[in-house]
Amino acid sequence: MIYPAIDLMDGGCVRLFKGDFNQRTNYEISPLEVARRCAQAGAEWMHIVDLDGAKHGKTEQADLIIEIAKESGLKVQTGGGLRELAHIERLLNGGVQRVVIGSLAVTHPQMVKFWINELGQDRIVVALDVHKGEDGDYYPATRGWTETGAKTLNAVLDDYMGSGLKTVLITDIERDGVLKGANVDLYKQITADYPTLQLITSGGVGTLAHVKRLKKLKPHGIIIGKALYEDKFTLEEALAC
């Protein structure tokens, strides 16, 4: 499954380089038009990140995201700044298919486990955005990638086993927006260590060869953002390859 991505800031489409808010590319096309074109190309899902929400720790673009969910014809998963159950329920009740929980999944796992059971495992995706440490392990970052925690990726995932968690989204921050290829070795490891989890990959896709390499792993989904905005290939080609 290919998930074309929209990253939102100030109501517009942007992309960051390695998660750096100071290295931002703005795109003129409106988010709703991007979503409509993706639907026309044959996509089923859209991945939307509220980067303002991720940066400031509170959802800021819910109205726009709900509009996209209602008007695009796509199933939408979205995250960024989701800290309260009421905000999550507003998105889900507004037509969003599922929400993506990042920072809280690391800092407040018991709360997220409660949400998984309260809302259903098909409504929550745990997103872990990781840096590789000097010791070779990967460590999830929080607060819009501005802070890195002490727990390893495996420690965080181990804690969720048995909680009902179904889908996990893993981003290698060093690959994000770089277009040099995804961290296939990391995704192979996760697939082997956690075969019961549905893995969505994110970060690094810049060519159709990168897409094909990821598809060989048979992940639940592959998120593609910048490569589509910059016409490295078409969404139709990514879906078909």
Rank of each mutant, 00 (worst) to 15 (best):
G73H: 11
G73V: 14
K75L: 03
V76L: 04
Q77L: 04
T78I: 10
T78R: 03
T78Y: 01
G79Y: 05
G80M: 07
G81V: 05
L82P: 12
L82G: 14
R83P: 15
R83Y: 10
R83T: 13
E84W: 02
E84A: 10
H87W: 15
H87Y: 03
H87Q: 15
H87K: 15
I88A: 13
I88L: 01
E89N: 01
R90S: 10
L91I: 08
L92K: 10
N93K: 14
N93S: 09
N93G: 09
N93H: 10
G94A: 12
G95A: 05
G95K: 13
Q97S: 14
Q97F: 03
R98P: 08
R98M: 10
V99Y: 01
I101T: 12
I101P: 05
I101D: 02
S103F: 00
S103C: 13
S103M: 04
L104I: 04
V106W: 10
T107L: 07
H108I: 02
H108P: 05
P109W: 03
Q110T: 07
M111N: 02
M111R: 02
M111A: 04
M111Q: 12
V112W: 10
V112F: 01
V112K: 03
F114H: 06
F114A: 11
F114M: 09
I116A: 00
N117A: 05
E118P: 01
E118R: 01
G120D: 04
D122S: 00
D122C: 07
I124W: 06
I124K: 00
A127F: 06
L128G: 04
D129S: 15
V130W: 01
H131G: 04
H131E: 05
K132A: 11
K132R: 14
G133N: 03
E134T: 14
D135T: 09
D135E: 09
D135P: 13
D135S: 05
G136L: 06
D137A: 13
Y138V: 07
P140K: 10
P140I: 13
P140R: 14
P140V: 14
P140C: 11
T142V: 02
G144E: 13
G144H: 09
W145T: 13
T146Y: 08
E147W: 03
T148C: 05
T148D: 14
T148S: 14
G149L: 00
A150C: 01
A150S: 10
A150T: 03
K151P: 01
K151I: 00
T152K: 14
T152R: 09
T152A: 09
T152I: 04
T152V: 15
N154Q: 05
N154C: 07
A155V: 06
A155S: 13
A155E: 13
V156S: 13
V156W: 04
V156N: 00
L157V: 11
L157R: 02
D158H: 12
